[in-house]
Design a protein around this nucleic acid. Structure first.
Lengths: 223, 223
DNA sequence: TAGATTGTTAATCGATTAACAATC
DNA sequence: TAGATTGTTAATCGATTAACAATC
């Protein structure tokens, strides 16, 4: 266990590396250098070598990196071979969309169960997963090791549900509620997918680009 | 137009500030200081003052910030008052979930149309929005000013669709395809929601926390 | 061997934090 | 007025980039 404290920036680049490498693999490439990978991804070769060196020595001087080996390494660093499992809590539109079409298995996660509080949903089978009543969690999860939960309940239930999940001993929450969760247990890992934050960020850049273009055309008019 | 080049880090904190301020507003708070806001959000007061100072002087010495005014300012900086409009391209599970339950209006966006290529979906009305055939885009968008597109088509169509959207003069793409888009027009703004990257990041931290706990308990065993 | 490219150390750049005069 | 808190300048910290010896 060396690698003391890898920065969040580095971690968030790892899935992108993996994606780029899978693409190279699909194209039939055997090897890739830090500079060609950098060009593909819009990063400097320096940064790529720095990033990889946090985890080990995966390259070879004069050759570069073996695409297949490197992607295996990165997938392993990300934990895709750990056999993690998760449950979906809240089978609304987003929950159902994830159950129906997100490929959890591709990223090493097993979807073990889905819960909702609404009687009319309980018993429905979505993509092979039966929706269970949230109050039956004990018998449903009996003897199962669950690592994470997808949280996709309505905003007003978000914190209550998050804390209930934490109390179950589940270690991570993939949060789709657009709410900043307040979880009492500080060890619970929260990974947010804030649609609203993302849309507002896009909105900012959109507004900015319009302002820039306007001031450009003002300049033109003055000519 | 002062504010030259605000860093991405600052921009991505703005929606979070707005969220915190809306919460304070709902709690009935009139004023907030940078230190109390910082405590609430897990940021230093310094950073908050620095961030705001990129855009103007919104506070008052000895008092702090007026919650209502500040949230209005930030909302405006983010462009929620610009009257942006968008279309959904690809009415699969995610596209439909967004149309059905994402509150675009709350963030200043009007959902103007939805497109799909599948005949069986065309004509369906979802939450008041009729799904149109993608090939009829000309007559559907005739005379409308569309600022952005939600891209929620299958992976294999992602790049083709993205470039078609760009060719229509749409300036921003909210990308849900989990694909790193290659768009020829470099002016198109792309805002990614990469579910897979997010899940893998969570997976990393999950794996890390297990490793740490394991090494802790090893230590204990040795005692 | 010569050329290419790594892993790593040092230099630079940018972002965060601390400090404080200004002032409500 | 005295206390609180801003906006801003300076100091620190961390992340990215550049450079280069090591070596395949």
């Amino acid at each position: 266990m060396k690698q003391l404290k890898i920065s969040n920036n580095v971690i968030r680049r790892l899935p992108r590396y993996l994606r780029a490498l899978e693409e190279l693999k699909a194209e039939g490439a055997d090897r890739v250098s830090s500079s060609s990978l950098g060009e593909k991804m819009g990063l400097t070769s320096s940064q790529i070598r720095q990033d990889f060196s946090c985890f080990g020595e995966f390259g070879q001087q004069g050759y570069g990196y073996n695409v297949k080996d490197l992607s295996t390494e990165i997938a392993s660093i990300l934990g895709t071979d750990r056999g993690f499992s998760l449950v979906v809590v809240g089978v609304g539109n987003i929950g159902r969309a994830l159950i129906e079409s997100f490929c959890f298995a591709q990223y090493g996660f097993e979807l073990a169960a889905a819960f909702d509080i609404r009687e009319e949903l309980v018993g429905k089978v979505i993509n092979g997963v039966e929706v269970k009543n949230v109050y039956d969690y004990k018998q449903v999860l009996e003897g199962k090791k669950i690592d994470a939960a997808v949280l996709s309940v309505p905003k007003r239930l978000a914190n209550e549900a998050a804390n209930a999940i934490a109390d179950l001993g589940i270690k991570a929450i993939w949060n789709f509620t657009n709410v900043e969760l307040s979880i009492e247990n500080p060890n619970v890992i929260v990974e947010d997918i804030h649609f609203s934050d993302s849309l507002l960020t896009m909105s900012y850049y959109l507004a900015e680009s319009i302002d820039i273009n306007d001031s450009d055309s003002n300049k033109q008019e003055k000519m």
